[in-house]
Amino acid sequence: MSFVIELGAISLFALRSLYWAFSPPFFFRETLRQMARVGERCLLPVIGVVAPFGMVITLHGLQIVHIFGVERMLSSILVISLLRELSPGLCGIMMAAQAGSTAAAELGTMRVKEEVDALSVMGINPFQYLIAPRLIALTLMCPLVNAIACSSGIVSGYITAVVFGGVNRGAFLSNLYSFVGVIDIWSGIIKTLVFGFVIGVVSCYYGYYVRGGAEGVGKAANDAVVRSIITFLGMNYFLTSALLALSR
C-alpha cells in the first residue's frame, strides 16, 4: 500500500524533473555522455536476453503451426510477438536492471557523500545537471536498444526455424512482414519510450531521496529495479489494450 502513496510522490517528482528538463540551461554534453553510457551498458545484456527468447518463440511457434498446418505463419508470429510485446518488455526489464540500478546507485552515492548538496551550493540545479540528462538518456536510448534487440531476436528465430527446424527459407523470409502493420512498429517505439521514461523517473527518485548510508544506496538500487518493473509492466497492460484497439 505504501508503494501506491509513493507513486504519487514519484509522479510529482516526474513533473518537477520534466519542468527542469525543458528549461535552460541545457547540459547537452552531459546528456550525450549519459546516452553513450546507457547504450554501452545495456546493449549486450538486452541482446543476450531477447535473442534466446526469439529462439523459444520459434520453438513453440513450430508446434502451434504444425497443429494448424500453417507453416508460412511462423515468421509472422515471431515478428509480431517480438515487435508488439516481448522485445519491449524484456528490453525494459534488462534496462531497469542495468541502467536504472546504476542511475539510482550513482545518485544515491552522490547524495550520501553530500555531492548533491555541494552542487546546489555551487548554484547548479541537481535536477538539471544530474536528473534531466539521465532521464532523457534512458527515454531516448530505450527505443534504440529495443530496435537492435528486436532484430537480433528475428535473426536468432531465423536460425532456429530455418537452420535447426527445417522450415523453408523462402516461406520464412517472404512472410516476415505480411501481417505487420505500421501500428506494430509504432507500438514498439511508444512502449519503449514510456518504459524508458518510467525507469528513469523511478530510478532517479529512489537514488535522489536515498537514506541511511552505504546500505541505503544498495537498497535504493534494488527498489529502483523492482518498482520500475512493476510500474511499467502495469502500464504495459493499458498501453497494449489501447494500441491493439487502435490497430483494428
Binding site: V49, P52, F53, M94, A97, T109, A214, N222
Partner: peptide, 25 residues
Amino acid sequence: GPEGVGRATNRAVVSVCIICIIMNY
C-alpha cells in the same frame, strides 16, 4: 568498498537473467 557491493549486486542480476534465459531455451 561500497562500490564493490553495488557492482556485485548489479552483475548478479544481469548474469542471472542472461544465463537463465539461455538455459530456458
